[in-house]
Design a binder for these strands. Structure first.
Lengths: 189, 189
DNA sequence: GTCTATACGCTGATAGAC
DNA sequence: GTCTATCAGCGTATAGAC
C-alpha cells in the first residue's frame, strides 16, 4: 500500500462494510485484515469509530453534491436526470448487493452516535430536496405527470428505491429493475 | 412476572429491540435487564440468539397470515384492504419509531444466520404475494387504477412503506402519512 | 425454570517502541 | 505512520446449584 493513501483506503473499505453489513455489523478488525494493517493504524487516522462513520457519510454527501453539479447532470433532461438517479442506486446493487446510505444508516439510526445521526439527516435531506426539485420542474415542463405534491412524489420514489435495494437481497436484482420501471410508468406522461 | 409467560415476554421484548435497534444492535443483556431476569434464563428458552431471532420472525409471519385470514380483512373492499395494510405499517411508527421486519432484517441480512435468512425470505414473499393479489384483483374490479404489472406495483408500494418507516426517523411521522396518501393518489381511480 | 459463576473471543481503545 | 502489547468491557454461551 502506498503511504498517504491509507486514510482514504480505510474510508473505502469502511463504506463498503457499512453498506454491506451495517454500522454495528463491522469492526476495525474487518478493515485491518482487508488492508493488511493493524487495528492501531486505523485508530491513528480515526481515533474513534464514530470519526470513521462521520467521514464516510460526509464524503458520500459531498460526492452527491458534486454529482448534482456535474456537467452531465446539469445538461440532462428531467427524464435523464431521473434515470441517472436510478443508476446511482443501481450501482449499490451492482457492487455486490449493497443497500444505500439512507437504508443502512436509518435502520441503525437509534444506535448511532449523534454526530453520525446529524450527518445522516443532512445527507438525506439534501437528496430529498434535489429530488423534489427535479419532480417539480419536470412536471412544470411537461416531462412528468403525477398527482399531488412534488415532495410527496419524491418521497415515494426515494423510499421505494431504498426499499428496493433491501428487498433485492431476499429476491434478486430484477426486483430493483422492475421497481424503477414501474416508477417510470407512474410518473411518465 | 408470571411463570410460563417468560418465553413469550422474551419474544415480545426481542421483537421490539429488533425493530428499534436491529439484530446486531441488541443483546441478551438488553432483554434480561428489561424483564429483570438473568441472561442464563434467556438461554434456557433460546439456547442461541439465532433461536430467538427465528422465533421472532416465525411469530410475525404467522401473525400476518392470521391477519389476512381475519374476518375484518376478508370482508373488506380492496381500498379498505390497502388502508389496512397502511395501518399495519403505521403501527410500527406509532410504537416509537420502529421500522418494519423487512426493513430491519434485510438491512442486516448478510450478517444473519442462514435460518433467519430463510425465515425472512419466506415472510417477505408471503407479504408480496398477498399484496400482488390485492393489487391485481382490485384493478380487475375497478377499485384501483395503475399502469403495468400488479406485482411490480405491489413492490413499489411495499418498498416505499418500508423506506417510509426508515425515513421517518430522520424527518418525522408526517413523512409516512404523506407517502401513504401519495400511494393512494397513484393507484386510486 | 431461574439462579450464580464462569469462560473466552471480540470490541473499541490506549501507551509506547520503532 | 505503523507497529507490538495490552486493556477493560461486552458479547454469546455453558456448568451446575437451587
Amino acid at each position: 500500500m502506498l503511504p498517504g493513501d491509507t486514510k482514504e483506503q480505510i474510508i473505502n473499505v469502511g463504506e463498503n462494510l457499512l453498506l454491506n453489513l451495517g454500522y454495528n455489523g463491522f469492526s476495525y478488525r474487518h478493515i485491518s485484515s482487508a488492508l493488511n494493517i493493524r487495528n492501531a493504524s486505523i485508530h491513528y487516522h480515526f481515533p474513534q469509530k464514530t470519526d470513521l462513520g462521520v467521514a464516510i457519510i460526509k464524503r458520500a454527501k459531498e460526492r452527491f453534491e458534486k454529482w448534482t453539479q456535474s456537467q452531465k447532470i446539469q445538461e440532462a433532461t428531467f427524464s435523464e436526470k431521473l434515470d441517472a438517479l436510478f443508476s446511482l442506486f443501481r450501482r449499490f446493487l451492482n457492487a455486490g448487493g449493497q443497500v444505500c446510505f439512507a437504508g443502512s444508516l436509518q435502520t441503525d439510526f437509534k444506535t448511532l452516535p449523534v454526530e453520525m445521526q446529524m450527518e445522516t439527516r443532512a445527507f438525506i435531506l439534501n437528496m430529498l430536496k434535489w429530488s423534489t426539485n427535479l419532480l417539480k420542474e419536470g412536471r412544470e415542463q411537461g416531462e412528468f405527470k403525477y398527482p399531488g405534491d412534488p415532495e410527496n412524489q419524491a418521497l415515494v420514489i426515494l423510499t421505494s428505491l431504498q426499499g428496493a435495494l433491501q428487498t433485492a437481497r431476499v429476491t434478486d436484482a430484477s426486483c430493483f429493475d422492475a421497481i424503477t420501471q414501474q416508477i417510470k410508468n407512474l410518473v411518465g406522461r
